[in-house]
Nucleic acid binder design. Sequence first.
DNA 1: TATTGTTATACTCTATAACTATA
DNA 2: TATAGTTATAGAGTATAACAATA
Lengths: 157, 157
Amino acid sequence: MDQFDSKLRQMPGYLLRRATSAAMPKVNDLLSEFGLRRTSYSSLAVIVAHPGLNQGQLADVLAVERPNIVQIVDQLEQAGLVQRTKSAEDRRAYSLQPTPKGRALEVRVTEALIQQGLRLTQGLSAEDLIHLRRCLEIIEQNADQMEARDVCDLSST
Amino acid sequence: MDQFDSKLRQMPGYLLRRATSAAMPKVNDLLSEFGLRRTSYSSLAVIVAHPGLNQGQLADVLAVERPNIVQIVDQLEQAGLVQRTKSAEDRRAYSLQPTPKGRALEVRVTEALIQQGLRLTQGLSAEDLIHLRRCLEIIEQNADQMEARDVCDLSST
DNA sequence: TATTGTTATACTCTATAACTATA
DNA sequence: TATAGTTATAGAGTATAACAATA
């Protein structure tokens, strides 16, 4: 029963899903110790690195739909990690700022994630990791450019 | 706003999630043209390659919980792609067999997925793909071995 | 007592449509 | 009219507990 999926393992999508499904629960477990989820951590990290951006920009950076950002920023704000302040230039928008508590937490969680990342990639060299990043970013870009265009012509063959 | 997530892109989990989130909708779109979802296709492929296995074994191969397999096999059976037959040896279990229609569909869909996989990995060489597979399988194995054990000691540092 | 398949259920993630207030 | 944020909602995907039939 070992390798009953050997044919599927030729496909990048299957490999991606297997690796992601195995790794994400570990990331979730780590983040939940700090009261965070994946997207709330990513949001905090981006806000710390680039204070003052607004929710729409944050959604674009993380490739998340805007409605889903609302609750995430709600949680970060209620946890005292981030502040919403009405933007002076555009009073529709909120400027997102990290609090000192938010900055401090981001440092600790980032360190923990880096350590966990080393365990997840144990057995891979520094070159392997650079190569892996390149491969994953190319796949992401290819997928983004694949807008409906060439999805369709295969069901008729 | 480009590369506002450059720090996050150092982390394998973030890269994995970005690539997977971008690629999976394309895979879903392709499969839905054939009336399949990701796990129902994977199940069909495994049943075609290894006829006679039961639902629990299928769940193990695909790393899916058994309750979720039930509905998937239901759908495959209702679509006339797979048959459940009571196993002679163990009358609790079902032996899963592909129908001729199921075998034929699997061939077509697999071909389409391979073509789509080539587009998703456009720009990567054959060596790149071998290397990528190795990296993803190592990450999956590392994650699987990371059972709660070393998740915990970081929140106290 | 343990296991196979099943039911019911619940939680997370993600996506869309429609609203409000500002521009 | 267009955009920022919001609300409500719905659909996948995934996970657990508990049950019936069989081992």
